[in-house]
């Protein structure tokens, strides 16, 4: 309950900040010595919040469906892609982490590649993935793979730390019970890793959304929120409020994914809630 109120307050604060800057800021932006240090605040660059909300209710194109319906459809489409990407990414990250924990050599050999993988620019990678996968599977799956590519990283790194987190005493205790690697993993390492896993999953969720949206744009996949962002931004000069509706949709998607991860976390961290919260 407190959390919900807090979130509402945060949204309200954002709206107030937006509108007050719009009210006091220079419509042409503040330029000092040829460098713009504050953005323009005219209606084309920063439409009123109310205008954006009103735009949601009006048709996308003359006589078409209202914008909000189009947005919801696009969000659901992208949510599907994100979910697949997130699940695949999380699974791959998990397996990599287990592998790296199990074999020292794997950690030394793999970890640099895992880190390196994230420095490849996504825009360069996306067309490649679409090119490779395009023949084997539908286009949306290529986008999922791009989302997974971004999502696996935080899980792999976070989970590895989590799996390595048990104290030597805990590991020795399991050894004294003649528990092998697998049972030590199940009874000790995995439960001990949950405090590391969930922050990593939250990052992975956000990364999967970004991957899906950017992936849609760079592979030219239709039907998702990424496509809408591009389409609507072409009308930025004539219909600025419309651009922001698309962004609103993308933000909403991020929230849904974050909420889903939180819902997953809830039943698995009972002891921490019971112990640490007063």
């Amino acid at each position: 309950m407190r959390k919900v109120l807090g979130a509402l307050a945060a949204v309200l604060l954002g709206i107030v900040a937006w509108e007050s800057y719009k009210a006091v800021g220079d419509p042409d932006g503040t330029v000092v010595a040829g460098v713009r240090i504050l953005p323009r605040s005219d209606d084309a660059a920063m439409p009123h919040v109310l205008d954006v909300v009103r735009r949601l209710a009006r048709p996308e194109l003359a006589g078409g469906r209202p914008v909000w319906q189009v947005l919801v459809d696009a969000c659901l489409f992208t949510l599907g892609i994100t979910t697949v990407g997130f699940l695949v990414g999380a699974l791959v990250g998990l397996l990599l982490a287990v592998l790296m924990q199990r074999f020292r050599v794997a950690e030394r050999g793999l970890l640099p590649w895992v880190v390196l993988s994230q420095t490849v620019p996504l825009v360069a990678l996306a067309p490649l993935v679409a090119g490779w996968g395009g023949r084997i599977w539908p286009a949306w799956m290529s986008v999922s793979m791009i989302a997974a590519y971004l999502a696996f990283f935080p899980v792999a790194v976070g989970m590895l730390r989590g799996l390595q987190s048990p104290s030597p005493a805990g590991v020795e205790l399991m050894r004294s019970y003649a528990a092998g690697w697998w049972r030590t993993l199940l009874k000790l390492r995995l439960p001990a890793a949950t405090p590391y896993l969930f922050p990593a999953l939250r990052l992975a969720g956000a990364a999967a959304v970004v991957g899906a949206v950017v992936g849609e744009i760079s592979t030219g996949t239709r039907g998702g929120i990424g496509r809408l962002v591009i389409e609507y931004s072409r009308e930025a000069t004539t219909d600025p409020a419309k651009v922001y509706t698309a962004m609103l949709g993308a933000a909403l998607l991020g929230l849904v994914v974050a909420g889903a991860v939180a819902a997953l976390e809830f039943p698995l961290t009972r002891h921490r809630r019971k112990v640490l919260l007063p």
Partner: peptide
Amino acid sequence: QEYGIAFQQAGLFDWR
């Protein structure tokens, strides 16, 4: 598993 052991530190699993 011929023996039971108690260490110098309790070493309990805090999620259990």
